[in-house]
Design a protein around this nucleic acid. Structure first.
Lengths: 122, 122
DNA sequence: AATGACAGTTTACATCTGTAGTCAATGAAA
DNA sequence: TTTCATTGACTACAGATGTAAACTGTCATT
């Protein structure tokens, strides 16, 4: 199973998923636009991710270039699977139903999803 | 915003959401069918939930009766909202699309969801 | 050669979580 | 009334997490 990625780590991953490889400083520059973290914090998160082999490092002179080793897609699948399992008994229906009842779905959302499902049946 | 409920705590809540009020021992009896936890562990979790005011206590002689103070529905809405926000930019479409692409949706699922959406549009 | 600016590594530290063990009070049973 | 079982309260303790500061090695500059 894929290594667990914490919330804070996830923010770092999102940056790396957008562009990679990047140096720690580059990553931090991006992350800081979202989260009010220090450079050190971002470095720590990168190290932990590297230790878990969720990101890979490649030496570039005196510094490292970081790249994701786990694809965003695979990660999302795992997390979604887990989420739906734990909270909705593994069924997507109840989740969609719930979001719908909670008025989290706009008419546009509904149309979009219907279109998607129509595609899927082909 | 609703207090955060950890995974272990969530298992306890599921039991209380099914029936309440219940004593700690009753809750533990139910929980143990799912998780291999000791009575003490369940009691600790109940205490933590009570401390966070996620469950309420009512004295019954020498023991307590516990009941949820947060409704399952409200909880699910919050957690789902948060999940979709963090991972799918707040849009449900990408989530459904993702699950679909990851083959997490069966033909039956698709039909069911379509039925649901059709209802919603009325 | 001395100095300063980065980069990565190590250490820190409070809080949250998972998972109980122990203790003290109290009601039930003998 | 002595004893036992039950219940909540307090304590424990390791690992994960959020959030860094301090340390160390090494180029680039003076």
């Amino acid at each position: 199973m894929t290594e667990r990625i914490s919330d804070a780590e996830h923010a770092v991953m999102e940056v790396l998923w957008k562009r990679a490889p990047m140096t720690a400083t580059e990553v931090a520059d991006q992350v800081v636009q979202q989260k009010d973290w220090s450079l050190q914090t971002v470095k720590t998160l990168l190290s932990r991710l590297a230790a878990k082999a969720v990101v890979g490092t490649e030496r570039d002179g005196r510094r490292f270039l970081y790249s994701p080793l786990v694809e965003r897609d695979a990660y999302l699948t795992g997390v979604s699977r887990n989420f739906v399992d734990r909270l909705f008994g593994g069924k997507v229906m109840p989740l969609v139903a719930h979001l719908a009842e909670a008025d989290e779905l706009s008419a546009d959302d509904i149309r979009e999803i219907e279109g998607l499902l129509r595609e899927l049946k082909k």
